[in-house]
């Protein structure tokens, strides 16, 4: 048996900042694509410790776990600590819901600063004003030519989730936008 393989994130070692914003690769996290209908929500609640949010564009958080509404039967669960969610879901089985681990499919960029909205609006066509996209709001949308999941974590702070192989593009796009914002 050889040594245990080490993780290499797609954005390891990167960072970028202007006077308006900073970009930081998010730390590794456990992610689950949760799919369930009405009858699966109780099970999901039991495992997560809270009910998945039912309102479009909204999120719910408890402890290290964030649960983002993506669609009427779809949530993106992000667990910053390893609370063993995949095992807990596996134990419950697939009769009422589907939980697929996508910890490595996605990666995330943390975008912070006074110009964050301007930077995002260089490529994201949604209205990101606080009135329309308040702290806690989240949505799958697009940034330039990439799909992203956008999650507002603070007045001037966003988490930009994207697929692994799109992260170089998303990072470069945000950098380009930050320079010209």
């Amino acid at each position: 048996m050889s040594k245990v393989a080490q993780r290499t994130g797609p954005l390891d070692g990167r960072n970028f900042g202007t006077t308006g914003v900073t970009l930081t690769p998010a730390a590794a996290a456990t992610r689950i694509s949760l799919r369930a209908r009405e009858d699966g929500l109780a099970t999901a609640k039991k495992i997560l410790g809270f009910a998945p949010p039912g309102k479009p564009k909204s999120s719910a958080t408890k402890g290290s776990i964030n649960c983002l509404w993506i669609g009427p039967d779809e949530w993106l669960v992000i667990d910053a600590d390893d609370s063993g969610l995949p095992a807990k879901f596996a134990k419950e089985g697939n009769t009422k819901l589907s939980a697929v681990e996508i910890s490595h499919r996605n990666t995330a960029i943390l975008l912070e600063g006074a110009k964050a909205v301007d930077v995002l609006n260089s490529g994201c066509p949604q209205d990101l004003s606080s009135a329309s996209f308040p702290v806690g709001a989240c949505s799958r949308t697009i940034l330039g030519k990439s799909e992203i999941v956008l999650y507002r974590t603070g007045e001037h702070a966003f988490r930009v989730e994207c697929w692994r192989s799109f992260s170089d593009y998303v990072w470069s796009f945000l950098m380009d936008a930050a320079k010209s914002a």
Partner: peptide, 8 residues
């Protein structure tokens, strides 16, 4: 299809 949104 709201393909880059809720997927519906």
């Amino acid at each position: 299809r709201h393909i880059h949104g809720c997927g519906r």
